[in-house]
Amino acid sequence: MNLPNPTPETVISLQDVDKYFGDFQALKKINLSVAKGERIVICGPSGSGKSTLIRCINRLEQHNSGKIIVDGNELTDQVKDIDAVRREVGMVFQNFNLFPHLTIVNNLMLAPRLVRNTSTEEARKQAMELLERVRIPEQANKYPSQLSGGQQQRVAIARALCMNPAIMLFDEPTSALDPEMINEVLEVMTDLAKEGMTMICVTHEMGFARSVADTVVFMDAGEIVERNTPEEFFNHPQQQRTQNFLKQILSH
């Protein structure tokens, strides 16, 4: 596959990030930097802190210590306008989280209209273009409950793209889907990667990781245990914990 190369410019940087839930430490001294256009896949066992990590990047969770810099803005309590940072960072959730009371096209139009003051016509035009891109323009006037899981997740991706984000975060976008719907979502994500989108994707789809990722990160117990190119990661895992994990998921 022909994927564009990441540029050396760093768009996300985490330095010694710790995150606690009460006494429980969910992230331990996380260091990670993401270059513009880089595609990172994060994997690891359940409860290892993958979701927590990417949720810290758009501050759905607040880290307790360390530094997170996104697109030049450090995320702190003092960040006056966290909403401004969030506009640059799209997020796709495991459970789609489409707004159930709005039609598909209105799901896509809401944020541009509220946040960017885009006119209705302009927002609609852009929404329809994005629905074309995720290959479901014909569903525009339905409600989310009338769509299949795979279609809903593609709408969720289109919704995130409506804000023209520089970075996309995916939290297990295919794990709530029936097997026959996984590919349609992965295809849309692969298209995005080809267009040079900076992506951080939590997923256990190893085929996707191999073909699309520049870097695979393995987490366990709140730590980054290993990071490498997909080739090295899958063929020559360095750490015992990585080897055990790969053995487990590849045996399925």
């Binding site: 909403d83 969030r86 989280n97 944020a111 946040v115 919704r159």
Partner: peptide
């Protein structure tokens, strides 16, 4: 569902607008 507010927050929609529209 909490996820809906999070999805709106992730789009950069402000707290007040999340309450009003979602």
């Amino acid at each position: 569902p909490k996820g809906l507010g999070e999805a709106a927050a992730a789009l950069g929609i402000s707290k007040v607008q999340r309450f009003i529209y979602i």
